[in-house]
């Protein structure tokens, strides 16, 4: 059973997935940030592989990617950093990134290496469903990795069911059609999440885009199995001096009762 599946068997409410950019704020911050996230209550770590042209991301994550790239982050460097990951990180880790750098690395080699380091799944927002079915889905599956598709309020039901069927681990419910880091009106989002919940999907679903604090985290958890926080955490990291203190303060606020 995959670490993600195991997690959702034990906990299917208020699951918190936190995004961080590999190689940010410093090239060698990756494991320190991941360790802090785990220690302070994150259930899943979504580790972003920086790309020069990240279409689905807003300003905050794009600038963190640029910093990471300027710090010298590459897939090879990241894999070197992750070599010792599973000696200290026991929660699920999914890699988030864009197709191009992975294609240059070699898609199959990428999956083999990621799996061998203890990575659990992949989120690739610009992976087309067609290419997934034709080529990549099998490679991902053969290597025992979960793949998480994104769905939006505009995704038609038949397509949504298909994306759910092809996903494993969880489904990524984008709160509305927007890039990351945009503010949302969660009363409108609620209608969509209620619909998602009533569909009895195969996978648990986590809500991402616009989740930034306790209020938004609580709001989506009425219907969802949990949420993904990205830009707000990156912003906190960009302002804080110390990774552990920043992460502790940030997550305490989000998870407080």
């Amino acid at each position: 059973m995959s670490r993600l599946t195991e997690l959702f068997e034990q906990k299917n409410k208020r699951v918190l997935n936190v995004y961080c950019t590999a190689g940010y704020p410093q090239l060698n911050s990756t494991l320190e940030v991941m360790g802090s996230l785990q220690k302070n209550g994150a259930d899943i770590i979504e580790l972003g592989m920086p790309y020069s042209d990240p279409l689905a991301d807003g300003e905050v994550i794009q600038s963190s990617s640029l910093v990471a790239l300027n710090n010298g982050m590459t897939i090879d460097t990241l894999f070197d950093q992750l070599a010792t990951m599973r000696t200290s990180i026991y929660i699920p880790v999914v890699l988030m990134g864009y197709m191009n750098p992975i294609l240059q690395y070699g898609f199959e080699n990428f999956c083999i290496k990621a799996k061998s380091l203890g990575v659990d799944g992949l989120i690739l927002p610009d992976m087309p469903l067609y290419e997934f079915e034709q080529i990549y889905g099998k490679i991902i599956q053969d290597n025992g990795l979960d793949f998480i598709f994104l769905v939006t309020p505009e995704t038609p039901e038949t397509r949504l069911r298909k994306l759910d069927a092809l996903s494993s681990g969880f489904l990524y419910a984008v709160s509305s059609s927007a890039t990351t880091g945009t503010d949302k009106d969660f009363s409108k989002v609620a209608v969509y999440l209620e619909r998602l919940k009533s569909m009895q999907l195969k996978n648990p679903f986590l809500v991402g885009f616009g989740i930034k604090d306790k209020a938004s985290f609580d709001a989506v958890n009425i219907f969802a199995n949990g949420a993904i926080i990205g830009s707000a955490y990156i912003q906190a990291l960009s302002k804080g001096n110390n990774v552990e203190t920043t992460t502790k303060t940030f997550l305490e606020r989000v998870l407080s009762n």
């Binding site: 087309p128 067609y130 994104l150 769905v151 505009e154 995704t155 397509r159 059609s177 890039t179």
Partner: peptide, 11 residues
């Protein structure tokens, strides 16, 4: 060619 776009643009 193809259409390598995030789901938010699919519709």
């Amino acid at each position: 060619g193809g259409a390598y776009i995030p789901e938010m643009l699919y519709s």
